[in-house]
Design a protein around this nucleic acid. Structure first.
Lengths: 184, 184
DNA sequence: ATAGTGGCCGAATGAAATTCGGCTACAACA
DNA sequence: TGTTGTAGCCGAATTTCATTCGGCCACTAT
């Protein structure tokens, strides 16, 4: 599968509703984007050129944002995962605060409704690296407080799925620890 | 790039320390896994078969978990993103609670250190779907309370990066809203 | 009715993955 | 210090696959 990413330009505007075949294609590609178009076509009931055309459209309209390698954070010296809530006095979308996006440790930044303004997901080498990041956050004007939730263990972590997709295998350690059953 | 996912079997045990070339390969593949081995080899300074061999090893040892399509959640009827904190009386890793992993809306489940036990990331169709999920969570024994943080807008959302990787482009709406600059 | 269009197929072509044999550099060991 | 083994690399060869092309069918609107 060499769905070239070159032509991925989110023409979000011209988006058609996705039919059942599109969803099936997406489900399959979310699980594994390395299969051939022939194989993919066999799974969804189309010829290789037909799925090729559909995948191109899905990429052109930005439904498929990219084809990427998903890596194990712990394997690349990112052992600490934390969620950081940031409270600000004003409405916290200052450039100084949002500039934390430049740190590769910061994986997500959201504004949320609730008792806090900003919510960050941070994957860092260790506590010291997190501390440095928090220091930078506090240095931004208007920041009143932060609350960090340090992840002890992760039981599930998967990218967005289309509705009715097959499920990501629950991590082994999770199964070992909790003996969760596999079907509802 | 057809790094077949078939042979991805996380032999986490036999992991060698990653050298600079491995990291460069990872950085590149995290950005775009559709490039050819020849292209990849040119970027990191190796021949195509050489990078092929390295990528196979990275997959075999589980550093690369999978090659996947990253899709736009909003394009597939997942308009609501929320983080849910779950407080439990006991130590909340009961099978009943963890069984929410079967819902494709649940993207992440972590246990955290802080004033809560469990932290979920949920991407659902709408508030009603979230409500249904919360109902299921409350039905689990030992659940005392939940606090949901509904995401208003997302400014950054990217998968884990190897250290010193190039950064994911900040979402356009973020730039438009906040005018964040691109370099530290 | 009929021209236009979107989406599909099978075959053909070109590019890329994957394999293979050999080479070099380094390490363990006698 | 020589020697054997091994890990990792390269270039060439093979095979598989992405991608293109022409034609067909079904549906729509004029």
């Amino acid at each position: 599968m060499a769905v070239k990413t070159d032509d991925v330009h989110p023409n979000t505007a011209s988006r058609q509703p996705l039919d059942r075949l599109d969803r099936k294609i997406l489900s399959t590609l979310v699980e594994d984007a390395t299969q051939s178009y022939a194989e993919l076509g066999r799974k969804v009931g189309l010829s290789a050129p037909a799925v090729h055309e559909r995948v191109k459209r899905l990429k052109r309209t930005g439904v498929i944002r990219k084809i990427a390698a998903l890596i194990d954070g712990e394997a690349v010296d990112k052992n600490l995962l934390a969620f950081v809530h940031v409270d600000t006095s004003g409405w916290g979308k200052t450039p100084e605060l949002l500039a934390v996006a430049e740190h590769p440790e910061v994986e997500e930044i959201h504004t949320v409704a609730g008792d806090t303004c900003l919510l960050l997901k941070v994957r860092a080498r260790d506590a010291r690296a997190l501390e440095g990041l928090l220091a930078r956050i506090y240095s931004a004007p208007g920041v009143i407080a932060t609350r960090s939730y340090v992840v002890l263990s992760t039981y599930l972590e998967r990218p967005p799925q289309p509705a009715h997709s097959v499920s990501w295998p629950v991590l082994e350690k999770w199964q070992a620890n909790a003996g969760v059953s596999s079907q509802p």
